[in-house]
Amino acid sequence: MFSQIFVDDEDDMAIKEGPQYLLFYLQSNLFALRGELISEIVELPDITKVPWMQPCVKGICNIRGAIVGVLDISARLMQGEFVQTEQTSLIIVSTLYDGLIQKIGLIIDKVYEVEVFEAHELQLVPNFGLPVKSYYIEAMLPYKGDFIPLLSLDKLADLEFLSQRENPHG
């Protein structure tokens, strides 16, 4: 009498099986991040500077009532700072640090696409011809005859390192 019948709705969507990746631009280079790490992508909000931080740590912003630290990954990976345009976006990612989930915003120049790659498609990182240090790259993704570096979030948002402050007063 209290048993319930669950009718399984099996609408099969025919899509490529596998994890999703976000492709985006930093300056003029395409990069990728694992989609599972990304909780949302927003227009770059106003940033409040926090004093004494490293140049790539831009400060904090308000993401729907929560304080989120903002990282300029252009500055972290390459020379120079990001330049704000209409397409500048903030990717909110979750990373585990000291056993706690921390949300961090990464500034990117432009979102390109979300693409599915199967595990076997990932390629090893070569030692040369990379736009950034190989240290930050987890794998290469084959895309339209080219290879896109898949960035390692752990290396990119290494909070241990990034939280070190620069005391201008010595």
């Binding site: 926090v50 931080m53 939280s163």
Partner: peptide, 13 residues
């Protein structure tokens, strides 16, 4: 609201 781990060393904040 906490600043988060990124800012554990933020000066006197």
């Amino acid at each position: 609201k906490p600043l988060g781990k990124l800012f554990v060393n933020a000066p006197a904040l």
